[in-house]
Design a protein around this nucleic acid. Structure first.
Length: 230
DNA sequence: CACCAGGCAAGTA
DNA sequence: TACTTGCATGGT
């Protein structure tokens, strides 16, 4: 058993391949998606994003200026629509007021950008990091519930309730700060989590990665010899 | 029917 | 700090 992030990434990458995750057309689309996907399946978020696009509003100068009721109508399929509409609109207006454009805001360095994002109501740790990593494209490590669950199963000494910044630091101190690597690593965790590490998924105590026992042939955690060497 | 999905914030103790 | 509740739709 190991909790070495570098090895875990190699195994996941070999098993699932490069993910090319979150390929939004624009930084704004990624930004909007990051907020709308909170506690919501991506499928529903796609509907909301489609609504915005079809209305010709997926442009910062337009979306930051629409009314609250219209925003509510647009994002309704993503759930929590009253909260999300208000928060999204407030955030976009604030960025326009203080930075003029989304690019101007995204031009802040990663740490500064993260701090500014966390000041907004509606943006917490995971959403802030997702925006920095996938919209602004600056290397910061994203932690989500899958990451915590998987790491806990890989190494039970890692508490599933571990503080966000602590687990984030765990990865960032062990992996080179590379944009594509950080983006793909998080994507790999989500892929593994969705398929083999859901809440009620049985834990396999015999497997080095304690995820499940039904991984298929291209073994991630192989019972055989190549798990730790490939 | 219950439970979950790529969280967050506000309130309470 | 730690725990609880509200937010709301859609899928299994």
């Amino acid at each position: 058993m190991t909790a070495d992030p570098v090895l875990i990434y190699k195994l996941l990458r070999k098993r699932f391949g490069f993910q090319d995750w979150w390929p939004g057309d624009t930084p704004l689309e990624v930004f909007v998606g990051a907020i709308l996907t909170q506690q919501t399946s991506w499928k529903n978020v796609e509907r909301a994003i489609a609504n915005i696009k079809e209305a010709g509003l997926m442009r910062f100068d337009r979306l930051s200026g629409i009314g609250l009721s219209r925003m509510e109508r647009l994002v309704r399929p993503s759930g929590f629509y009253r909260q999300k509409a208000k928060r999204l609109r407030d955030i976009l207006r604030c960025i326009r007021r203080d930075y003029g454009s989304l690019e101007g805001f995204m031009a802040l360095d990663a740490l500064e950008l993260r701090e500014r994002l966390l000041e907004f109501s509606g943006i917490g740790n995971e959403t802030a990091d997702s925006i920095v990593l996938y919209a602004a494209e600056k290397p910061t490590f994203v932690i989500d519930s899958y990451t915590k669950r998987i790491m806990h199963r890989v190494d039970p000494s890692i508490d599933e309730d571990m503080a966000y910044d602590a687990l984030k630091g765990y990865f960032e101190s062990r992996i080179d700060r590379d944009l594509t690597l950080y983006q793909d690593f998080h994507a790999q965790f989500v892929e593994l989590g969705k398929r083999f590490c859901r809440k009620r998924e049985p834990v396999c105590a015999d497997c080095p990665l304690r995820i499940t026992c039904s991984f298929g042939s291209a073994r991630l955690h192989g019972h055989g010899a190549d798990a730790a060497t490939s």
